[in-house]
């Protein structure tokens, strides 16, 4: 029995390590605004990391992402918690949206915020529609409860499409 408990503890510790993995030597932010985006790793280092996604959630507010996209339901900008992606749902697509901006109003944050933060934002934005692993998604919010937690979201099946009637 105690062996089973010990095994469970080890398993939990291993999962928790992965879930909370924290890197202490981040790459320094690029200075100036790049005119061309250099190829980025296709795997987002923040994707499977609860701490990084929690950081992304804080940054989402700090950089006023919530001002346009609300808590994922949208407003001035499109909804991010639904299945519809205007410019693709893959980490690289979301990264490009943030860094280069998009023609219908998404501003370009490239060169203005550190690259590592962009990846944290990418992972959080994907968490809003359940595109990241269940156990790394935020389970609570620091604010007035306006929606169910990201962790409680059932994953959407992403579709890259323009919503009906959007010019």
């Amino acid at each position: 029995m105690s062996r089973v408990a010990a095994l469970a503890c080890v398993m939990l510790a291993l999962v928790a390590c992965e879930r909370e993995h924290r890197r202490f030597s981040e790459v320094a932010p690029a200075s100036g605004r790049p005119t061309h985006v250099t190829p980025q790793p296709s795997r987002n280092p923040a994707e499977g990391n609860a701490w990084a996604i929690a950081q992304g959630k804080q940054l989402y507010e700090a950089y006023n992402c919530n001002g346009c996209h609300a808590n994922g339901g949208g407003g001035m900008g499109p909804a991010l918690m639904d299945a519809t992606w205007l410019y693709g749902s893959e980490p690289q697509d979301v990264y490009t949206s943030i860094v280069e901006g998009r023609p219908n109003g998404m501003p370009a944050f490239g060169g203005r915020i550190p690259d590592v933060q962009v990846w944290q934002l990418v992972a959080y934005v994907r968490s809003m529609s359940g595109q990241t692993r269940f156990d790394v998604r935020p389970a609570r919010s620091d604010h007035m409860r306006v929606k169910e937690s990201e962790q409680a979201r059932r994953p959407e099946r992403p579709v890259t499409a323009a919503p009906s009637g959007r010019p």
Partner: peptide, 28 residues
């Protein structure tokens, strides 16, 4: 703007009061 009513704070909180509107009208 195809907003998602599961976020009651969408459109500066207006969406929560209008969640049944899509059942009554489309755009155009």
């Amino acid at each position: 703007a195809d907003l998602d009513p599961r976020d009651t704070g969408a459109a500066l909180g207006f969406v929560n009061a209008m969640r049944d509107l899509p059942a009554h009208t489309a755009k155009g």
